[in-house]
Amino acid sequence: MSTSPRRRSGAQFVYEELLDRIQDMRLEPGRRLNEAELANELGVSRTPLREALRLLLAEDLLDQLPTGGMVVRRLSTRDAAELYAVRARLEGLVASAAAERAVPADVNRLIALLQRNEALAGLAEGAMESGHAIHVEIERIADHAWASRVLAQIEGQLARYRRFSNASPDRRETALAEHRGIVESIAAGDAAGAGSRAEQHVLAAREATVAQLEVSLGPAPGAGSSLPT
């Protein structure tokens, strides 16, 4: 039997529920949050709701208004560019470590995930989820605690931008080829190749994301034609 929201009324439940809604943009960027409305909808008191909102504010997923209210942080091309630049370095480090650690069973799991990614490459949501699963598995194989910790810290922000990185069919096919190259390098134990391919893959995703955001939001003030690495 499922547990109702009212029975799961801790701050952690509220935090996880609001995080999910922010990441999949049911709570859209720029939306002002109404505490009374949210508390009623989630079946909780104001106390756990405010604790959850403080956590989300600390993670920069919400912005505080001068009047004291909170809004969902807006998307920006600058945030996207900076987040992906950090992620690129970390993913390169993680892929390199995975190539050094992977055993045949790990490689088999990666191949299975790659095949799923290939099967879903025609669907934006499916490609996003299956591609992300490859990165999660590589991170597991790498077992690099500090890199994983920093990746986890920026994941809340990245989740909102990831859907923009594979919006076009061409980018999804290219990303699939990039995933294939990373997996091949890991399978061959090529740490340098895996790291380089993973970093370039994320930088390519950054270019695609920023291009899509510029269509949706307009270019950032003072933005140039290229992105720093």
Rank of each mutant, 00 (worst) to 15 (best):
S185A: 08
S196V: 07
R162K: 14
A81P: 03
A208M: 04
G68E: 04
N108L: 07
A58H: 07
A127H: 10
T174V: 12
E139Q: 13
A220V: 07
A133N: 08
L62Q: 08
H144I: 02
T174N: 04
D60R: 15
L110T: 03
A187C: 09
E139C: 10
P5R: 13
D24F: 06
P169W: 07
L75A: 05
V183C: 01
P219I: 04
E155L: 12
T77F: 02
E35R: 15
D20Q: 14
A205D: 08
G68M: 08
S168W: 06
R160V: 03
A97Y: 00
G10I: 06
R31L: 07
R7Y: 13
R163N: 08
D106E: 02
L61W: 02
V71A: 14
G92S: 06
A208Q: 05
E41L: 13
L75K: 02
G68C: 11
L33N: 05
L113Q: 06
A99K: 01
V44F: 06
R171G: 04
I186H: 01
A133T: 03
S96I: 02
P104F: 03
L176K: 03
D170K: 15
E125P: 01
V72W: 00
H201A: 10
S76D: 11
A112N: 12
L49K: 01
A80S: 09
A121W: 00
S225N: 13
S148F: 01
G126K: 00
P104K: 05
M25D: 10
N166Y: 10
M70I: 08
E28F: 09
Y161W: 02
L114W: 00
I182Y: 03
R180P: 00
A81K: 00
D20H: 10
E17L: 07
G189H: 06
A39E: 02
T67L: 14
I154S: 00
A211G: 10
